[in-house]
Design a protein around this nucleic acid. Structure first.
Length: 941
DNA sequence: GCTCTCACG
DNA sequence: GACGTACGTGAGAGCA
């Protein structure tokens, strides 16, 4: 039956409603996994009230929900800045949009969106059609932009305030009748939509003007008659802007729609489909209401542990279940194992922890696996516990009563790889790698360490013992109590099974409890997106990089070590001769005494511990005293040489040989994801992020990092990423422009500061500007810059003053960032990562440190976020190339690739890196990536 | 285990 | 006006 007289259409402004529900309702998460669903819940309630006749007071016969399709519409063609100042979508709201569309379909309600048009335009079109067909229409929205549609046959209903909006309410809001609302809006503009309007004219004035002149076109025609000179001038000068604004605010009621109104007639939902959706969302009350109304049985929603939903504050739980090791189960037979696996499959998640013989995942042997499914319900599967051995003759044998390792892993594999079963761990990268070496790639995963990191970076570390004490009030069994310390330390395979059950199961139990606590807090802390897009997906990526390792040429290192040893011995002789006595050059204490006590060189300063400082800067100063202290100058110079070589030998050429894995013949570092407060990774065992590069001699160590035959190393690094981010965040147009035009940024800074044309730039002036640019990133101080540039402090301060004069935005950024930190206790990156600054309001020197750290953190952190995003996307992007990602060095990614594919790799990887900020963050500066390739890292870099 | 020094971005 | 200062890391050696 065609839509017409007697029919009543309800149009729900879906997008607007979700926003309102999101902001008006307390945050609500799905009990089982913490998925944010508050807005979906609010949306479903209103939808049900609309279609169920229990509340059909409004008498709707037809209904449709309208959504915005995409951010850009025809209005952007008229005015590119339209809605350009919209804040980014809250992270816990984003996933609710698709759910809301799903909900609409589950309720059997029309769900309409058209590309290029806003929901408002579609609503205007449908409402007009309904009114013209002789029926009526109510728009369920309180959006003032829709008020222009109110007329006979069309009204609005504000669902949050439960009130109808008719011509009177519109007049109340705009001071004019609905048909003149557009005129008022065009004059007054709208800051939320970034509609310009006439400058200085607000709603009140606009309404007055329209009341006086009747409508906008008359007003603009007769603008010259306005008595107030300022107003008159504004209207005359901005006539064009006002006309554009009018086009922006006027809704298009002629959207090409091919959806007859009669298809929107309310029909009963299919009970099965609707209830499935509602139970999936775990809406208990609504599920019951709907089921009762539809006269079907109320489906059960599995009762999740109450604590998970309690949204306890970040503190010790009050009524927690005590830890009781006697309840932990040892899984020693197949039947028990199968029972546990069945329960895990039923519940859909499991906390897991592996026990091994080493902290080095590449050499560790699996000893046992712990599982936990609920607080207090945890088990340990002993697999590789041994007895005997240790002496020359007896080889260790497996303890009896253990399941077979490979059979157990085969039984676990389907669960651990099941996409519907969540695997929860503390520092999952470790367990992921252990199991990956046995052919199991766990997915999906959650990591309590990374959850803590997303919420608490800067406040505390994120190790399990600390988290357990802080959040669960429980001190876990110290590993030392099982393994001992020092020389007599044993490995976990030698621990008794009974002890291992208590220890291992407890770890899984703790992890599970932390997860239950953290899951809802992620979204309360507004870091769900950070966790989901920057932390969690990085785990398998880093695991693969670490397992890949990098080929290191032992012979090269060994030859260098030998050469260094000779050179060191030679220098030691010369040093003894110059000093007139033999002493340990490696002892700063002895060196200080020789220089400042015996040779009486001035300028020796003792630090907190009473020892003389003998750092490189101090020694370098002494080398300049050739006239007054020729011997001292020579000694300092020799020691500097000795130090640099000793460093290269001990830390690099010697240590790296040790780090070569005997099985893979490669070096496997381990990245710490949650170590640095800013979001940077760090690299340990060995640290491959500080391989020398700045000096020629040091750089040769990189020649030992090689590509296997037939392959090449490819290095891609972001150029000046932190300065670019600073230019964006602090919004410095001249710096942004320089980056857009590819101008040498340090030279450009120097030119601005010292009034030197670019083509007359000297290297010294440029060097100073470069130091200042870096200083700014670090939270510049006159003292620090003076020391770095070795110039008087007053001169350094003068540079800084001039810099701030030329780039006032930087000073403003610094002040604003510090202020934000003082008020909130944290700062944020562009991607929403929080870095806490607990010392910012401290008294004393601590506050100075904290201020500079607060200034630096958003810049360093944003850069860290960018490369994290690139790394996460990289495996998919290069999956068809014979290449793999090996290392990350903060702004550099190092790949190994078959020779012929190097150009293709560079093209693909560069694209990923240069676009890594999009689409979450758009930058006013381009990110550019420089690439190199070669047989070794020195050539590639 | 702490301090000093120095390698990197 | 004085105070102490560039931001973020990890590792080796000396020393208590």
């Amino acid at each position: 039956m065609a839509f017409g007289k007697g029919h009543h259409l309800h149009l729900i402004d879906g997008s607007a409603y979700i926003f309102r529900a999101y902001h008006a309702l307390p945050p609500l998460t799905r009990q089982s996994d913490g998925l944010p669903i508050g807005a979906v819940a609010g949306f479903c309630n209103i939808l049900w009230n609309e279609i169920s006749s229990e509340k059909r007071a409004s008498g709707a016969t037809h209904i449709a929900v309208i959504f915005d399709h995409s951010a850009t519409t025809f209005r952007n063609a008229i005015y590119p800045e339209y809605k350009a100042n919209r804040p980014p979508l809250p992270e816990d709201l984003r996933p609710q949009f698709p759910l809301t569309r799903e909900a609409t379909r589950a309720f059997n309600v029309s769900c309409i969106e058209i590309e290029g048009y806003e929901a408002d335009d579609i609503i205007a079109t449908l409402a007009t059609q309904a009114a013209e067909a002789g029926g009526s229409c109510t728009i369920i929205s309180s959006d003032k932009d829709l008020m222009q549609l109110v007329r006979p046959g069309i009204d609005m209903f504000d669902p949050m305030k439960s009130r109808t909006i008719g011509p009177d309410e519109v007049f109340e809001k705009f001071g004019v009748s609905p048909d003149r609302v557009v005129d008022v809006q065009a004059l007054a503009g709208d800051s939320t939509d970034n509609v310009p309007g006439a400058p200085g004219i607000g709603l009140k004035t606009a309404a007055l003007l329209i009341q006086e002149y009747g409508d906008l076109s008359t007003l603009l025609e007769r603008a010259g008659e306005i008595k107030q000179p300022k107003r008159r001038e504004t209207l005359v000068n901005n006539a064009e802007l006002i006309r554009i604004s009018e086009k922006l605010v006027r809704l298009d009621d002629k959207v090409p729609l091919d959806i007859p109104l009669e298809t929107m007639e309310i029909t009963a939902p299919e009970p099965e489909k609707l209830l499935k959706f509602l139970t999936d969302m775990e809406f208990r009350t609504l599920t019951r209401r709907v089921a009762e109304r539809l006269k079907v049985e109320v489906p059960a929603i599995e009762a999740a542990p109450a604590k998970a939903a309690a949204a306890a504050p970040a503190a010790v739980e009050q009524d927690r279940l005590p830890f009781d090791p006697s309840t932990y189960v040892a899984i020693r037979d197949r039947a028990t194992l199968d029972q546990w696996l069945a329960r895990i499959a039923e519940i859909g998640h499991v906390a897991i922890d592996t026990e091994t013989t080493s902290l080095d995942e590449m050499q560790a042997e699996l000893v046992g696996i712990s599982l936990a499914i609920d607080p207090g319900q945890a088990a340990y599967i002993p697999l590789g516990h041994k007895q005997g051995g240790g002496d020359l003759f007896g080889s260790a044998s497996l303890v009896e009563g253990q399941l077979n390792l490979s059979e157990t892993l085969a039984a676990l594999k389907p669960i651990l790889e099941d996409p519907a079963i969540l695997k929860i761990g503390q520092n999952m990268k470790y367990d992921y790698k252990i199991l990956a070496r046995h052919g199991i790639r766990m997915a999906p995963i959650d990591d309590t360490m990374l959850m803590s990191y997303a919420m608490q970076a800067g406040l505390n570390q994120h190790g399990m013992d600390l988290l357990s004490e802080k959040y669960l009030g429980h001190q876990p069994i110290p590993i030392k109590s099982l393994l001992g310390t020092g020389k007599s330390q044993i490995t976990f395979d030698q621990v008794g099974v009974d002890d291992a059950v208590k220890y291992g199961a407890e770890d899984a139990d703790i992890t599970l409890r932390l997860w239950q606590l953290f899951k809802p807090q992620l979204h309360q802390n507004r870091v769900t997106t950070v966790y989901e897009t920057l932390e969690r997906p990085l785990v398998p990526v880093l695991a693969d990089m670490e397992m890949a390792g990098i080929a290191v040429n032992r012979d090269t290192l060994s030859r260098m070590s030998n050469a260094f040893a000779q050179k060191l011995a030679q220098l030691e002789d010369e040093i003894a001769e110059t000093a007139g006595e033999k002493f340990n050059v490696g002892s700063p204490k002895q060196l200080g005494e020789v220089l400042f006590d015996r040779m009486e060189i001035p300028g020796g300063t003792k630090g907190k511990t009473g020892a003389y400082g003998t750092g490189a800067d101090v020694l370098e100063d002494i080398t300049t005293m050739k006239d007054s202290h020729p011997q001292g100058a020579q000694l300092a110079s020799l020691v500097l040489d000795w130090r640099s070589i000793a460093k290269l030998k001990s830390t690099y050429t010697d240590a790296l040989q040790q780090a070569i894995n005997p099985e893979t013949a490669r070096v496997h570092t381990s990245y710490s994801i949650a170590g640095a407060s800013t979001g940077r990774l760090s690299s340990t065992d060995p640290n491959l992020q500080n391989i020398p590069v700045r000096t020629e001699e040091g750089r040769r160590i990189r020649e030992a990092f090689v590509a296997p035959p037939g392959k090449l190393l490819v290095s891609l690094d972001y150029s000046q990423i932190e300065l670019r981010i600073l230019a964006h965040i602090a919004n410095i147009p001249s710096l942004q422009q320089a980056f857009q035009q590819g101008i040498d940024i340090h030279a450009m800074t120097a030119s601005e500061m010292f009034n030197v044309p670019l083509d007359q730039m000297t290297s010294d002036v440029r060097r100073k500007a470069k130091a200042i640019n870096f200083g700014v990133i670090y939270g510049i101080s006159g003292f620090g810059l003076a020391r770095n540039l070795r110039i008087p402090r007053a001169e350094a301060q003068g540079f800084i003053d001039r810099y701030f004069e030329r780039f006032p935005g930087i000073k403003e950024y610094m002040a604003q960032t510090v202020k934000f930190a003082q008020e909130h206790g944290y700062v944020q990156t562009l991607f929403g990562r929080k870095i806490h600054t607990p010392e910012i309001n401290a008294k004393g020197p601590g506050a100075g440190f904290a201020k500079r750290a607060a200034i630096n953190a958003p810049i360093q952190g944003t850069a860290a976020d960018v490369i994290r995003r690139a790394m996460i996307r990289m495996p998919e992007a290069i999956k068809d190339l014979p290449a793999r990602m090996l290392l990350q060095v903060h702004d550099e990614l190092l790949f190994e690739v078959e020779e012929a594919a190097a150009p293709a790799l560079i093209e693909v990887a560069r694209k990923v890196m240069e676009g890594a900020n999009a689409p979450i963050v758009s930058l006013k500066v381009p990110l550019t990536v420089e690439a190199g390739q070669g047989r070794n890292w020195a050539e590639a870099h």
